[in-house]
């Protein structure tokens, strides 16, 4: 294995790369196409949710908050559904736990979630609206 080409072969390899197009992606302008199953920001469908709180129970980081009140007719009414995205680790267990089909809580391909303060990292029903289809 020991060769006496000193550093000639490695030099040729680096030289070869000089003439290739760089592989890095120029991020803000150019973005990678994400996989279909990419686990990004959540989406939540209030209309179909049955407030079973399976997602709340399974979340390892306890970052989902569901407030339910009972209407005079004896039905469950969802008062609030908040995801503390700053605590979320995007494991996707909540999506798996959802008993409905199609799932009420899904994960979108949105991943640029930086924000200026902690309160804005709490995503309520309005900000969680819109599943995969409505993504640009």
């Amino acid at each position: 294995m020991r060769t006496k080409s000193l550093i000639a072969k490695p030099m040729l390899i680096t030289l070869k790369h000089l003439f290739k197009k760089p592989v890095t992606v120029q991020y803000p302008e150019e973005k990678l196409t994400l996989a279909e199953r990419y686990r990004g920001m959540h989406a939540y469908d209030l209309e179909r949710c049955i407030a079973c709180s399976a997602c709340v129970r399974i979340c390892p980081n306890k970052c989902i908050e569901l407030q339910v009140s009972i209407t005079p007719e004896g039905k469950k009414k969802i008062e609030a559904y908040n995801i503390y995205i700053g605590r979320c680790m995007f494991c996707g267990l909540c999506v798996e736990a959802c008993p409905l089909k199609p799932k009420v809580i899904t994960m979108t391909q949105k991943y640029e979630l930086a924000d200026y303060d902690r309160p804005s990292l709490v995503y309520g029903i309005e900000r969680l609206r819109g599943g995969r289809e409505s993504e640009p």
């Binding site: 680096t14 030289l15 790369h17 000089l18 760089p22 592989v23 890095t24």
Partner: peptide, 13 residues
């Protein structure tokens, strides 16, 4: 820039 290209990336741009 040159080392960037040798390393298959853009370098400062």
């Amino acid at each position: 820039k040159f080392i960037g290209r040798l390393q298959h990336r853009y370098g400062p741009n």
